[in-house]
């Protein structure tokens, strides 16, 4: 199995190279260059050309690309035009904020979706099942930002249960105090996004279970005299959760990529919010870095899914 995983990792290398070339081209295609902002109306055009030449902007694209890659490996992603800070410094905090929020969202989402999906699948056609299916339609149908805004208004402003902005309170101190404060800031957006994110998991799990129920191996288990509850826990649920587990890698990438709305509404300083603000302020070096990072994350997500799949499904294990 280790060989499979290692091979899978090696396949990622050309994927990442192609991704980086695409992102580089994208960055080059954007209007303006790093000097556009720092040049005054009285600057000598010759001086601009000299600066550009010094910066290598007239080199062939592959030299520029190489230069960019080398910088990338040194952790140098350029400088944010608007914040006047290295991109890495700007991104650093934001990435961890987003990852924590996404993880919490995913946990809440599974905590809600798995029991609901199991109940709906097991008691297919019952009143409970119909209720869950209706719940699913609602979470699928309502516009995300409306739910976020309503939640923020109700629980944040009206009831005052949760903070309405930021990641941590100014007065939090000590490791535990800070951690609790961070959690407190994440909990409302995570619950709302988590519940909205249950749709596909519930639907998928429900149909997997209904499908598994009529499988021959379930009949074999029943013919062995295995009690119904055990048939469900040992055969039906286990086998139905497999594709869900394998999908987790993609799920988390999707959440990180889709953090724009939730972070914007809750003024949560994560990558999604940064992405929106850097696009509006045309801070291209930050945009490029985020696109590259999300791209790599997507590749990692599919890698994670493949690894989980090869662990849980013996049919995929390759010597």
């Amino acid at each position: 199995m280790w060989k499979t995983i290692l091979r899978r990792v090696l396949i990622m290398i050309p994927q990442i190279i192609i991704l980086s070339i695409l992102v580089f081209m994208l960055a080059k295609a954007m209007p303006g260059d790093p000097f556009t902002g720092s040049i005054g109306p009285n600057t000598d055009p010759k001086q601009i050309v000299a600066l550009k030449r010094a910066a290598g902007l007239y080199d062939p694209w592959y030299q520029q690309y190489w230069h960019w890659i080398v910088n990338l490996f040194h952790g140098n992603l350029g400088e944010s035009y608007t914040l006047k800070q290295p991109v890495t410094a700007v991104l650093g905090n934001r990435i961890s904020n987003t990852i924590w929020l996404s993880l919490l969202t995913l946990i809440i989402s599974y905590a809600v979706a798995i029991p609901l999906g199991m109940t709906a699948g097991r008691y297919e056609g019952s009143r409970r099942d119909r209720g869950i299916v209706i719940f699913n339609f609602i979470t699928f149908g309502v516009p995300t930002f409306v739910v976020f805004l309503l939640g923020l208004f109700l629980f944040g402003y009206q009831l005052g249960w949760f903070p309405t902005t930021g990641t941590i309170s100014a007065d939090a101190s000590g490791f535990i105090g800070e951690a609790l404060s961070r959690l407190n800031h994440m909990i409302l957006p995570a619950i709302l996004a988590g519940i909205l994110g249950t749709t596909s998991t519930i639907q998928y799990l429900r149909s997997e279970i209904i499908d598994s129920k009529s499988q021959d191996y379930v009949r074999t288990a029943r013919a062995k005299g295995v009690p119904t509850n055990k048939v469900y826990s040992r055969h039906i649920f286990r086998n139905s959760l497999l594709p869900i587990a394998a999908f987790a890698g993609f799920q988390i990438t999707g959440l990180i990529g889709g953090s724009i709305i939730v972070e914007t509404v809750f003024s949560y300083p994560g990558m999604g919010q940064l992405f929106v603000s850097s696009i509006t302020s045309r801070d291209y070096s930050v945009v490029t870095a985020i696109v590259l990072f999300t791209g790599i994350l997507a590749l990692l997500g599919s890698l994670l899914s493949d690894i989980i799949m090869s662990i849980v499904d013996p049919r995929i294990r390759i010597e």
Binding site: Q215, D216, T220, N239, V312, D313, R315
Partner: peptide, 9 residues
């Protein structure tokens, strides 16, 4: 069907 009658996992 002996393949389907056994749990693949």
């Amino acid at each position: 069907d002996p393949l389907a009658a056994l749990n693949p996992l």
